[in-house]
Every structure is written in C-alpha cells, then in structure tokens.
Design a protein around this nucleic acid. Structure first.
Length: 681
DNA sequence: GATCCTCGAGTTCG
DNA sequence: CTCGAGGATC
C-alpha cells in the first residue's frame, strides 16, 4: 500500500471506528459485531505502525494509553468550574427560589431543567476544530490537572466531533463539562473479574473512577470501565444554545454521551416533584447519583443572577439521603446460627443510612473479613440500597491511624465454649456441640417460625427464656409445657401463658412437610421438606429410609441424604421423635391429591418481585402453588412469567434480558381464570 | 468436567 | 436480597 492509499484508508477507518464506538458506548446499539470492530481497529493499528507519521491525536488507537507521565500539568480553566449550593428538603429549594426571585423578577416565570446529580469525577474537555485536545479535572474550580491521555481511554468520550456526519457543525473551539463515572453493571462485572483473579475488589464506583483517572500510567486507566456523561458547555466560539435543555440536546447531537433522565418542567413545584421522582427511581438507574440538580433553563438569566462564593445562584443541588456512608467499626461480634454456623457481625458507631440508624451489619463470614482486610477500629463504608439490609462494603484504608487491630478468629463457641470446626474447603465455621444452648435457642425459634410450625408468641426472646430457665431441653418438650410452668417466667401472666399453650397445641395439625422443615436438618428447607414428605408419607418411614431411598427424591443427592441419615442417627433426635409421637405431633401426608383434575398453572414456573396491590408476596406465592404452579426464587430461562409489583428489584432486569413476559396481579388472576376454564374442557 | 439452576441460611430496623 | 453449595444437565 503506498503512502497515499494508506492515508486515505486510515482516515476512513478512523471515521468508521469513531462511528461504531459511538453506536456502542453512547447509543448502546451497535451495528457491527465486536469481532468486526476489532478487525477494523487492528487494520488501523497496522497502518499506523507502518506509517508512524499518520498517527493522530484523535485516532482510536490512542485510547489504549500512551506513556506514563511523572506528574500532571496544571491547567487554567477557561471559566470557573462552579460547584453548587445544597438543599436537603423541598423547603430549602423553595427558599432558594424566593431569594433569587427577589433579585430578578423574571425568575417568577422561569422554567427549570432537573438532572441527576452524578456521583463521579467532574471533567473539563477541550475541543479544537472538533478534535479532543485536552481534558482536565475540576481541581479547585480555577485550575485543574491535565489528564488528557487518561481521558482518551474512556470509550464513550468522542475524540472528534461531530461523531456522525450530518450532525451540527462543531465550533472551532468548544469546552464541555461532564462527569466521568462507572456504571453499576460495569462496576459489578469488573469486581467479579477481579475476585475471580484473586485480586482485591473496589469499594465503590466513584472512588474507583476518580482513582483510575489520576493514575500516572494511562494503561491502568484503560483497564477500568469508565464512562462519561456530559451536561454543560463551559466555553465555546460561535453560537451556543440559549437554554440548558437545548444544550443537552445539542451535546447529544454532536455525539457526546448525555444522560437520558433530565426533564424540563414549567415551574418550581414541578421541579421539586421531578427531583423527588428521581429519588424514588434512584436504585433503578444505570449509575449512582447522590441527588438531583435543579437549573434555571434560561442560561442568560442564570448567568445574570451571578455567583455567591463558588456557587451560582441559577442552580441548586437537592441532596438525597445518603445511602452510603462511613462510620467506625467498634467491634466484631459473633453469632451462632441454628445449624451451628458461626457468623461475624459488625458493631458500628450508630449512623444514619438511607433514613434509618444502623448499629449492626452482618459480615457474612470470616473469609469476608480477611479478603477485605477489615480491622477493628477501621472506618468502614456502609451501604443500604432500597429497603435492603445494610452491609459493610469495606474499610477506608486511607483513614487508618495505625491503632486498628486485625480481627482474631474465635477458636471456641461464644455460647458453649466448645472448640469450633471448619470443614476443609468450606467457608463456614461450625460449633459442632449438639448440646450448645445458643443452637437450641435458634432451633426452637426456627421450629416455631411462620414458615415452619407457626407457633404464635414464640419468638427468639421467649425461646431464650425457655432454654435458659431449663423449661425445655428440645423442641419436643414444648408440647408438655403447662400454664403453671410458664407463669414463673418473667413477663408471663395468665393470659400470655394460656395463649402460648394454645398456640403450641394448635401446631399439632401442621402438615408433615412443615414438621420436616421445622426439625432443622442441615440443608433441608421448605422445598426439599415438601418432596420428602410426599415421598415417605410420615416420620417413621423417613427415619427408616436409607441413602438409596433418599437420593431417589428429586433434589436430594449424596450430601443431603447423608445429612438426613446423620440427623436420624443421633440419639437426642431419636428421643425427640419419641416425644413428638407421644405428644401426637405426627402428621401423615394426605395422599389423595386434588381431585379437580389438571390445575390451571400446572407446569408453569413463576417468580414474584416487588409489592403487589392487594396480595403480599407470600400470598401471591401461595395462590400460584394452589393453582399448581411453581414459584422460583430467581429468574432463569426456565421461568415462564415474572409477576411484577411496584418497586421491582434486579429480577426485572434479568427478566428483560431473557425476554421473559411479566404479569401484574390482575394479569395473574386473568391467567388463572383463562387456563382454569381451558383445563376443564 | 463445566455450567446452569435451585435451594437454604442468615440478616436490619421500626 | 445475596451468597455459597449441592444437584441436575449437557
């Protein structure tokens, strides 16, 4: 290929790559496969290697990262990169409005744009004649650091504008403000990959993005999935849009990535509403945000309003309640589960997260503490998403004082003092003392719980009292409790004692499936208990079963079979069975399955997510099961329908990925009706 | 032998 | 809800 041809081909390749990159990273609708893209890129790289003088600043091959630099150069921003004043509730927003309405009466009739307040690193991007030439951090607002080579590695950053031919002509000079961040999904995938490689994972997207962009070696930056969203013009030549709303549209047309969430509203109350609406959707957005920004749409008016300190008067940030905060880890406690599993939990300096005060959070297991290098006394990040349980993300290592103590794994059970055991290759640590009082308490609690024997009035506290006062030695003893014997417990008077005895009595009629589940055999929960009940009919038959009989049951393999055999082999459990039999707690499975023929939902699998209008989730599951359907815990290809309520979780995303149809509560009822009628014909 | 799927267990605050 | 582990399936 001669020089002239090479030059022509290089330009063509760059144009193509630019376009496909934009389709992929900005529009997220690629028109060529990854393989084709890679082939084009390889061809360009080949040409550039043969003709090094053809390499340009805006060439996609330059994204991989150039030479490391010693330090970043300081650059002066063409205009101050302002911060925003904060509002924490709607009234703060209204008083901001009143203040600026006094300064300029046009504010009274101003429209607003409401945008997500992105939680990333603010960047300032310079374009000369449409080519990306300089990128800087915000710094102190006047001066920032030039991180151009690092920003070049960001795939959604246009190296040349307009990206698509036919877009508006780019001004000869343009400076754009945006936010570099990492999308939630990308962050998750990245952490999973790091974990698989045995490397330390990152605590949150924001710190990761900001840390990666300050790397002196651009190839490190390139290895992080950083994205960009732009939202303002800092400076530019020629005619620029007059409103914020038009600015967003214009940036989008030039090929910049722009968030799709902003909305334009006619007045302040609508703006407040839009900001609050953004807060409710916060968990479902692709990126993390810590608030909403309300901006006066008219940029001329906005700039005339001026600045207070570093904050422009024409916009305000409405901060959401923090869902991720740091606090001090005061100590690490240890719990004993009903199966004897020992789990550590964090004792925290109380802190507000997403509207509730958190004092404790689980640490999952001892490997978690080791992997994250969590030490007592550390400042740790706590996260609470939606109404999900708070958890410790990890320590802030930079905040260490040096007096933090590594956690020493306990060698003895905190309840009974017996030595703990860990099975080779397993994460869990067990207390194997079958007489451990803590285990008995949890065992009684489980036995009485709603999904098991459903004994009302017997929660963990009463269970603890009964065990500590020696009223019971196993769950079988519950059935010989009398009112008299309960009366000497603290907090028990005649009425409460009576109620408990009655509740225990009522539990005799629970079906076999529940009783098997209630026994607390390791690895046997609701579902397998149901299968065992159906297969064996009563506890006598189950206790006589051997490994072969057991593995015949669907879902039971050698491990579960052994767990069942072990349980029935223990003397204390033999004694327990005897007590239950004497107490006539001995249900048999009703082997006359429904006579009404095929059920409406026979053979269909459902997953329920979110809050339904009339039924609780458990009721909905019950309804599906009664009609012959199966309810699974998570969405997979085998799922037929996702029953969808308000505020669905991640299950909806997965269902959409797999193209699984959704139903609302009414839809479910209609389905049962139509199929029910069809089945009877 | 690898991958996908399902189940079980533990878990916070008000 | 999330994780780990066991079981089923190819």
């Amino acid at each position: 290929m001669d020089k002239k041809q090479a030059t022509k081909r290089a330009i063509e390749l760059r144009r193509k790559l630019q376009y496909h990159n934009y389709r992929y990273h900005v529009l997220q609708s690629p028109v060529v496969s990854d393989v084709e893209f890679d082939r084009l890129l390889a061809e360009l790289r080949q040409i550039e290697t043969e003709h090094p003088d053809l390499v340009t600043d805006d060439s996609p091959t330059q994204r991989v990262g150039g030479e490391p630099v010693d330090k970043f150069e300081r650059v002066r921003h063409p205009a101050s990169i302002l911060s925003l004043s904060n509002a924490f509730d709607p009234d703060d927003i209204r008083s901001w409005f009143d203040r600026i309405a006094k300064i300029d009466e046009r504010v009274e009739h101003a429209g607003f744009v409401v945008e997500p307040k992105l939680d990333g690193l603010t960047v300032v991007l310079h374009y000369e004649k449409g080519v990306f030439v300089l990128g800087a951090t915000r710094g102190d607002g006047q001066y920032g650091e030039a991180i151009t080579s690092n920003l070049r590695t960001v795939r959604s950053l246009p190296l040349r504008i307009p990206v698509e031919s036919g877009g508006p002509p780019a001004p000869s000079r343009l400076v754009v403000r945006g936010e570099a961040l990492i999308f939630r999904d990308d962050f998750k995938v990245m952490n999973q990959a790091l974990e698989a490689a045995g490397e330390r994972t990152f605590v949150n997207p924001r710190n990761t993005a900001s840390g990666a962009l300050r790397q002196l070696d651009p190839s490190l930056t390139a290895s992080r999935p950083i994205s960009l969203l732009c939202y303002a013009v800092v400076d530019g030549e020629g005619e620029l849009p007059g409103t914020q709303w038009e600015t967003l549209a214009w940036l989008r047309e030039l090929g910049f990535p722009v968030a799709s969430e902003p909305s334009r509203v006619p007045d302040l109350e609508a703006a407040i509403e839009a900001a609050q609406e953004l807060e409710t959707r916060r968990e479902n957005l692709a990126y993390e945000l810590d608030g909403a920004v309300i901006k006066i749409d008219d940029l001329q008016l906005s700039s005339e309003l001026g600045v207070v300190g570093k904050d422009p008067r024409g916009a305000i940030a409405y901060k959401f309640a923090a869902q991720e905060v740091s606090t001090q880890l005061q100590d690490i406690g240890v719990n004993v589960g009903r199966t004897g599993v020992i789990t550590p939990y964090a004792i925290l300096e109380p802190v507000e997260v997403g509207g509730v005060t958190v004092r404790q959070a689980t640490l999952h297991n001892f490997d978690f503490i080791k992997d994250k290098d969590i030490r007592i006394g550390d400042r740790v990040m706590i996260k609470r998403a939606g109404d999900v349980i708070p958890y410790v993300i990890g320590p802030i290592e930079d905040a260490r004082q040096g007096d933090e103590k590594p956690f020493r794994m306990p060698r003895r059970c905190p309840s009974c003092g017996e030595a703990l055991e860990q099975v080779e290759g397993e994460v869990a640590v067990y207390c194997v003392n079958s007489a451990c009082p803590a285990q008995l308490v949890r065992n009684v609690e489980h036995f009485a719980s709603r999904g098991a024997m459903d004994i009302e009035g017997l929660g963990i506290k009463v269970a603890q009292q009964l065990v500590e006062e020696g009223k019971i030695g196993d769950v079988g003893d519950l059935y010989s409790l009398t009112e008299d014997r309960l009366l000497d417990l603290e907090g028990f008077a005649e009425k409460k004692a009576q109620a408990l005895v009655a509740a225990v009595d009522a539990s005799r009629s629970q079906p076999l499936q529940r009783l098997i589940g209630a026994l607390g055999i390791r690895g046997i929960g609701d579902v397998v208990a149901g299968d065992l009940a159906l297969a064996f009919g009563d506890l006598d038959a189950l206790s006589r079963a051997n490994a072969d009989n057991l593995t015949q049951v669907e879902g039971v393999g050698p491990n579960l079979a052994q767990a069942v055999l072990d349980w029935f082999d223990q003397n204390k459990n033999k004694a327990l069975l005897e007590k239950l039999k004497q107490a006539r707690v001995w249900p048999r499975v009703d082997r006359s399955p429904a006579l009404q023929g095929p059920l409406a939902l026979d053979g269909l699998t459902f997953v329920v997510t979110g809050t339904l209008p009339h039924l609780t989730r458990d009721e909905a599951k019950e309804l599906i099961k009664i009609q012959g359907g199966k309810v699974a815990g998570s969405v997979s290809r085998n799922t037929n329908y996702l029953v969808l309520g308000e505020n669905p979780g991640s299950k909806l995303d997965r269902a959409q990925q797999l193209g699984i149809p959704t139903l609302d509560e009414d839809g479910l009822r209609r389905l049962i009706e139509t199929l029910g009628r069809g089945g009877e014909d």
